[in-house]
Nucleic acid binder design. Structure first.
Lengths: 202, 202
DNA sequence: CTAAGCATGTAAGGTGTTACATGATTCT
DNA sequence: AGAATCATGTAACACCTTACATGCTTAG
């Protein structure tokens, strides 16, 4: 009786279940999957993947086939029928969220307290990151993703589209951001000026 | 000695510090701020805001002015010079991340295991959410945001731009996604049919 | 032979959420 | 009068990350 599985939220467990619906895989391969196609909207580390697989195994939602060739341990997981049922049930019941935690945008909000150099560096760094991810996405198109369901292609195209939009916006508007931030700099305390004295009590 | 404040990451504490750099506020107002301008890239709940303010207060980075008019407690916080220094230091040192956790996109990846109705509902729900946030953003333009720094306007415009791009993509491509998902539905096990045979070796 | 990649896992900890608990004031 | 909004806070817990720990294999 594989109990506890009425999760409304798509945690790492459910994600693993879902990825395994594309075909069997090891924990390591699952990680690569997260990094390749899913990285722009769902990250997961080994520290969450391996325990998830173990829990799923314990619940009978995945089956594990161990092979140890010459001391090299390898555990290939695949979805069980119970696992597919559970996955379908979760998908049918879920009310998925969509949240972004962008420290980058957060920092930008406080650009008026930053040096123009740092601000520039930040922006260029983010642009580079975006380019990197976009390039990686481009690679995926021909590669292994061919036999994945259309939905995954949809999600990837979505990522490409929105990241391109983000990139374009930043590129086109960074100029005025930087000059505006410079203009709005309040009288700089930490430069070598009459020091404002109060660092307060010890 | 206001110690422990070499955080490289922009946690809620630093965010509160940053928002207070726009002007004094209560915890409740801070929450509204998160909800209004920041919601699309940084969420924070009371359960993290209030403790953050207390910690900042203990470290001397913010000052608190309590007013209790007729049993109605109100704590107005404002940045201290030490707080501004700390904020500047954190901003100068940080390497901001940008991560998205979209259960929505995750679920879409497994569209082949969902009913077309659920899929449609999901997509329409997300579109409605986007419209809602976009409308809210539009309101902000004239309203209170006038005196906020240009950087905040940049971030808001960024949000508007990218969310619009997301919305457009979904609107334009949901058609083929839904039909493709329907086509790719594997023979449905949980209906009363002959079980799927090809589980391969077992 | 050394570095990178493949491969599995554990333990401690950080960070934030949910739910709870309370109460005044203003709008309908 | 009741609902919504203003207002503050706590405690338990979920969830994931980081760093650690280990060892084989392949490519340079």
């Amino acid at each position: 009786m594989p109990a506890r599985n009425q999760s409304k939220s798509l945690d790492v467990r459910t994600m693993c279940l879902g990825i395994l619906s594309f075909g069997e895989a090891t924990g390591y391969e699952l990680k690569r999957h997260f990094e390749n196609g899913f990285h722009h909207f769902y990250a997961a580390s080994f520290g969450s993947i391996y325990p998830a697989l173990e829990a799923l195994s314990a619940d009978g939602l995945v089956a594990c086939q161990e092979t140890a060739e010459g001391g090299k341990l390898r555990k290939v997981y695949r979805l069980t029928p119970a696992g597919e049922s559970a996955l379908r049930a979760t998908l049918a019941a879920c009310e998925p969220t969509h949240r972004m935690r962008s420290e980058f945008l957060a920092v930008l909000c406080f650009a008026h307290l930053m040096s123009p150099e740092k601000l520039s560096a930040l922006i260029d760094g983010r642009l580079a990151e975006l380019d990197d991810t976009l390039a990686r996405h481009h690679d995926l198109r021909d590669d292994a993703h061919a036999q994945l369901p259309a939905s995954v292609r949809f999600v990837n195209e979505f990522g490409r589209h929105t990241m391109q939009a983000a990139r374009d916006f930043i590129e086109q508007n960074k100029g005025w951001l930087i000059s505006a931030a410079e203009r709005e700099q309040p009288p700089d305390d930490n430069a070598s000026r009459a020091p404002r004295a109060r660092r307060g009590a010890a």
